[in-house]
């Protein structure tokens, strides 16, 4: 999963947009963004946040500065441990070519001590999208952990695991009818990149604002889970 291979694999699978969303971390997004320069692939810097309730949510941004500002907020409320590389394997930072820069011993596991709704508001304040991830999973999925979709939660969409169709999800769970549902590969290995996807029909160059308009169905924009 080094940056040039991620970009190549995404392009080979016909993707136009990907997001780099490490767990409670943003550290390797810059390298993938740089590796994609000139390739036509838009790489969003982001994070898979685990919030206080132990619910995972995708936080997606336009710029590295926004993503890093969000990471700083998350680090401030992270669990006070160090990463144990002997037990859990080393965490590397790499450059755009995939070469080793440094080993990172920050602890990115576990929940950041920020409540779900506060996290959504903070991501929105930075201009990002907030999308609870794999919501049907018993662990770390919003519906598994919190049982019901919280009426007061301001989320831009909800992500389903690859094997769950939006129509099936709406039958199985009581979700707000206006809540957009997307699916993504959650790729942890190169081969999984692009195994499922969501099509965002846009009317302008890709940006967080355009994605938000597509999620809201503005104009001819829409999202389609093929």
């Amino acid at each position: 999963m080094i940056p040039p291979l991620i970009v190549d694999e995404a392009l080979r699978k016909g993707l136009h947009i990907i997001a780099v969303t490490d767990h409670n971390a943003v550290g390797n997004a810059a390298a993938v963004m740089e590796a994609a320069v000139g390739s036509g692939l838009w790489v969003m810097p982001g994070m898979e946040l685990q919030c206080q309730e132990e619910v995972d949510a995708l936080c997606l941004f336009d710029t590295l500065e926004q993503a890093q500002a969000w990471e700083a907020q998350v680090r401030a409320v992270a669990l006070p441990f160090r990463h144990d590389a002997e037990r859990f394997g080393p965490q590397y930072r790499v450059n755009a070519e995939g070469d080793f820069i440094a080993e990172d011993d920050s602890f990115y596991q576990g929940p950041a001590q920020i409540p779900l709704e506060e996290a959504a508001a903070a991501v929105h304040a930075l201009g990002g999208l907030f999308i609870p991830a794999h919501i049907e999973r018993p662990m770390k999925g919003l519906l598994g952990v919190l049982g019901l979709w919280p009426a007061q939660l301001r989320a831009d969409a909800a992500e389903l695991s690859p094997n769950l169709r939006p129509s099936a999800a709406r039958q199985r769970f009581r979700l707000p009818p206006e809540l957009p549902l997307i699916t993504s590969s959650d790729a942890h290995w190169l081969a999984v990149i692009g195994s499922v996807m969501t099509i965002f029909v846009l009317e302008g160059p890709p940006s967080i604002a355009e994605l938000r308009r597509a999620l809201c169905g503005e104009g001819e924009r829409r999202v389609v889970v093929p």
């Binding site: 309730e53 598994g144 919190l146 049982g147 019901l148 919280p150 007061q152």
Partner: peptide, 28 residues
């Protein structure tokens, strides 16, 4: 602490012990 488990397994009249404090505990 998983509210989906409580919805499926808890019975009326029981005491429910949890560390979860999200608003949804009231609904469940």
């Amino acid at each position: 602490d998983l509210l989906s488990c409580v919805m499926a397994g808890a019975q009326p009249g029981q005491l429910w012990f949890t560390l979860q404090t999200h608003l949804n505990i009231v609904a469940v």
